[in-house]
Computed example of a mutant assay.
Amino acid sequence: MVDFTTNSSTAEQRALLALWAVPGLGPRALSALRAFTRGELTRLLACPVREWLGEAPVPMPVRRRLAEVPDLGLLAERVLERCAAVGMGVTFAGEMTYPARLAEVDDAPPLLFYRGEVGPPRRRVAMVGSRHPDQGFLPFARGFARQVAEGGVGVVSGAAAGVDRACHWGALDAGGETWAFLGSALDELDPAQAKLLPHFLARGGVFFSELPPGVRASTTTFPRRNRLISGASDAVLVLRAGADSGSLYTAEAGRLQGRPVLALPGDVLNEGAAGCNALIRDGHARACLSVQEVWRAVGIHPDKAVPPGEGSSWTELSVEARGAYQVLDRVPRSFDEVLAGSRLSPAVLSSALVELELSGLVIQHPGRLYEKV
C-alpha cells in the first residue's frame, strides 16, 4: 500500500467527485478504491495519480483513463468549474439536497448533479409511461398528475416526451413539487428538455442526473436512470405502457427496491396499455383506479394531506426539529425510541415533534408513535 496522508471531509468529497467523473468508474470500482485507501479517499489526493495507480484495484479500461489524469484535485476543480458555468449543484449521499429515499437503495450513486431548489422532505410518487401513448391520453395524464400533486405529493419522472412530461406539467399546474431524473448530464439536455428547464426552475422543480458534465444520453444511460426515478420515490405508478415500453424498467426497479408498484389498467384491445395490464395480471403491480389510491400507496391520508405551499419550509424549521426529523422513519417510532436516537432532552424533543407535526412533516399516531411523512 502506498503511504498517503489523509485530508478533511471536504477533500473526501473532492476525491469522490473526481473519481466519479472518470468514465467507467462505477460503484464497484469505487468500493474497491475505498478498501484500498482504508476508507479514506482523501489519501488519493495527496500525491499524483501515477504514484498510486499501479497498485489500485481497478479494471484495465479505468486504469487507462486514470493514467490520463495527472491529479485528482485538479480534475475535481475542472468538474466544479463546468458545474458552475451552467448553475449546476453537486449533492452527496447524506446531505439534505440528496433524495433520502434514494440513499437507501443498494446501487444508489454516491453523488448527484442537480439544477433547481430541492424542497423539504415529503412523500413522492414516480409517475411514468410511454413516449407515444394512444391519442387523447396525455391530457388525462396531466390532469391525473395535477390531482396527485394537489394532495401534497411530489411527482417524480424522467422528463421524456409523452406521459413523463405530461406528469411534470400536471404537477407544475398544481404549484406542486416535481423532480426529473435525466439520462444525460445536465449540460447535455436535448432541445425539449432545455425548453422545459426554465419552467422547472421558475416553479420549484428540480433536474437531477448521476452523470458528470459532458456525458450525453445513450441506450445504456436511460435504463440505469430508471432506478433513480423509482429509488427517489415512495411508490411507482405506470400510467400507460405498451408491452415494450421503457417505463416497465422503472416498474421493475421499483419492485426490486421494495416500492409499491401501481398501474393504470386499460382496454384489453389497446396495445398501448398491454404493459400496464400485464403488470397487473402477473401480480407485479396493483390496479390503480383513483388518485386516492396513489395517496394511500405513499402513506398520505387525503383528509390530512398538506397542499403544496402550506406549512413551514424546511429551512424555516428549528435546528432541533430538523435533528428530530432525521431520527424518524417511515414506520412509526415511539417517543422513547426517538429520544434515544437524538441528543435532545425530553422537553426539547416534545417541542420539536410538535413543530414537525404543524409543518406537515410528521404524523403522530395513537400511543405517541411518530412517523415521518
Rank of each mutant, 00 (worst) to 15 (best):
D190R: 13
L248R: 04
D173H: 09
D187M: 14
L239R: 04
V155D: 02
A241I: 06
A166T: 09
A232D: 00
L189Q: 07
S245P: 05
W179S: 02
L189N: 07
A253P: 01
F181P: 00
A241D: 07
D164T: 03
G170T: 12
G183T: 12
E210T: 05
H168Y: 05
A253R: 11
D187G: 11
H199C: 03
S245N: 05
H199R: 15
A180G: 14
A192E: 15
V238H: 02
Y249F: 08
A192Q: 15
A159K: 02
G214P: 06
R165D: 10
A253G: 02
L239D: 04
A160W: 02
L239G: 03
L189H: 09
D173C: 09
G246M: 06
A166N: 06
C167G: 07
A185Y: 11
V206A: 08
L228Q: 05
L237R: 06
A192K: 11
G158D: 03
P213F: 13
A159P: 00
S157T: 12
Q193N: 14
T221V: 10
G204E: 05
G242F: 13
L211S: 02
A253V: 01
Y249K: 13
A192D: 15
G214T: 10
A232Y: 00
D164R: 04
L189K: 04
G176D: 14
L197Q: 15
R203K: 14
F222H: 03
D187T: 10
G154W: 00
L182G: 04
E188V: 09
A174N: 08
R225I: 11
A160T: 02
L182Y: 05
P212M: 11
A241M: 08
A166V: 04
P191F: 14
S233H: 05
F181S: 00
L201P: 07
D234S: 13
V236C: 01
A253L: 03
L237Y: 09
L201D: 08
D234L: 03
D173R: 08
S230W: 00
G170P: 11
A171I: 09
A243I: 14
S245V: 02
A241H: 08
W179F: 15
L196W: 06
L201H: 06
G242H: 13
A235T: 08
D173W: 10
G176M: 08
A174K: 06
G162S: 05
I229A: 00
A194H: 09
N226M: 02
R224A: 08
I229D: 00
A241Y: 09
I229C: 00
V206M: 10
Q257F: 12
A235C: 10
H199Q: 14
S209H: 10
A161S: 10
V163T: 14
D190V: 13
H168F: 10
D164G: 03
G204H: 06
L197D: 07
H168I: 09
L248A: 08
A235G: 08
T250P: 02
G176P: 07
T221E: 10
S157D: 05
R216F: 06
P223W: 14
Q257Y: 13
G170E: 07
E188R: 15
G242T: 11
V238W: 02
A243N: 01
S209Q: 09
G175M: 09
A253T: 01
F207V: 03
G183W: 14
E210F: 03
A202S: 14
F200M: 15
A180C: 15
S247N: 07
R216K: 15
G183Y: 07
R227T: 00
K195Y: 14
Y249E: 03
